[in-house]
Design a protein around this nucleic acid. Structure first.
Length: 128
RNA sequence: CGAGGGAACUUGACGGUCGCUGGUUCGCCCCCGCGGCGGACGAGAGGAAAGUCCGGGCUCCACAGGACAGAGUGGUCGGUAACGCCGACCGGCCGCGAGGCCAGGGAAAGUGCCACAGAAAACAAACCGCCGGGCGCUCGCCCAUCGGCGCGCACCCGGUAAGGGUGAAACGGUGAGGUAAGAGCUCACCAGCAGCCGGGGUGACCCGGCUGGCUCGGUAAACCCCACUCGGAGCAAGGCCAAACAGGGAGCAGGCAGCUCGCCGCCGAGCGGCCGCGGGUCGGUCCGGCCCGCGCACGACUCCCGGGUAGGCUGCUCGAGGCGCGGAGCAAUCCGCGUCCUAGAGAAAUGACCGUCCGCGGCACGGGCGCCCGCCGGGCGCGCCGGCCGUGACAGAACCCGGCUUACCGGUUCCCUCGCCCC
RNA sequence: CGCGGGGUGGAGCAGUCCGGUAGCUCGCGAGGCUCAUAACCUCGAGGUCGCAGGUUCGAAUCCUGUCCCCGCAA
């Protein structure tokens, strides 16, 4: 365990260890996840056994052009990074934009925090 | 000044805070792998990165040579690694012009098709019509009669293709001669075709002359013929390392001989002997005695092997490269010299927020300018300066290049054409 | 990255190969039949053939470009 694998000291950084990167991790989320959504985001998540939460993104071509898809992914990453302290820990999350939603940072911030807390209550993960 | 044509370039600038990706470098940590964490420095999307429509490099596979099939291309000459791309030129069409567009080989090699209309849609022939002849009938005239002449109608034979509302397209056009009527039947001029000759050009082709028969429709982005080109797959190519599970092999203490039983047996069970190994204990100088266990099979464990999954590394960015200067060429492009290094992700980085300026659009708030009404003043217009508001397009690298095509707010520069006015 | 299929009235499909007339079923509207509804009978409306160019006398059909939808393999 590296000494910085402590979510309290992560601050607003966003490192590769903070992302869901493996096929197997995504499969686990999709097979045993809880689900929460509003009219901006759809979030699925499960416990990951780590001291911090990890973020994975699923933005298909149905969402729009490459520019629109990149825009969504950057906004969700930015929201996750900025509000690390407000998001529950110990979860693997897969986030997907809702069909028809418009990519605005303030709404993504709000949705991400509310939906992840709802998931945490459902899964019994520690709240911040 | 107005209208227009053609090229080339550009795709906001600067600063601050918090982040991301990879590079160099420094420090710290441990289970030492060149792993994790932290800091510093400098770098980080495009003209189309897009569509994936062509062409190549590269990699792997296949391959003696050729032909057929299939696909593609299609004026000529040049450029290129190559092209279906580019340049120049030729030809055709469009435009007053600058210029623009063209899949632009072959229809006298063959086959097919040409709706409707029209006599006929391609070998030419036939219908109406026109002309000549024959025969018959009606009528008129001459005649005493026989008969003769003429007009009209029907039929038959022959000539003819000038005319026929059509159609996208109709077997050259105009004039004269000619004829029973006509016809390139003949002649002149014109259009077009073929052949020959001369000249110019590398060539496509152009210019000029002579002769000929007089004329032979369109469609090949219909089949086809001709000429030329093409092996297949793609960086998820290909290469290296390699968990776990499964597979194969070896090791981990057993070896040798004998007796009894099960059904003979080299198979199985049991018994005890010698040597060996492990443990215990006793005596003792590196040795010896006694006791217990081991012996087969399976599993576990350890090691090795090949293939290779998850995963990791590589291919991965220095290249038909950018910039500058000089030279060859009308140009596309090529050559020489100098100089620079400029993204390399992988559930996939280049983002968020703020400030100032810039471009564009709007408002008409203040100033300015012009016009109108007019006593102070007011109204309308312009959008020059300031102010306020909005806005900055199309779009995101994924092995790399050369093209094509498509999307796009705007801005800049150069060259050229036409019209009007002034000198 | 490499391929395949498809855009035709409101819906589902023919017609495209081999170019000249866009047709079928359901649905829709009007009338009839019936006491009434359905069924049935008669009549009718409704199509930029995805879009833009080109070839041709003429294009849904042939060629080129382009947009969208669906699917396949690694």
């Amino acid at each position: 365990m590296s000494p910085t694998d402590d979510s309290a000291s992560r601050g607003q950084r966003f490192r590769p260890a903070d992302r869901v990167r493996r096929r197997a991790d995504f499969d686990r989320v999709y097979q045993q996840s809880a689900y929460a959504a509003d009219d901006t985001l759809v979030v699925r998540g499960c416990l990951n056994g780590l001291a911090h939460s990890r973020l994975g993104l699923a933005v298909s071509r149905q969402v729009g052009s490459a520019v629109v898809r990149n825009r969504w992914k950057r906004l969700v990453r930015e929201a996750f990074r900025r509000h690390r302290g407000d998001v529950p820990t110990g979860l693997d999350l897969v986030v997907r934009p809702r069909r028809g939603a418009t990519p605005v940072l303030a709404r993504v911030d709000d949705s991400l925090i509310r939906l992840t807390r709802k998931l945490a209550r459902r899964l019994g993960a520690p709240l911040p």
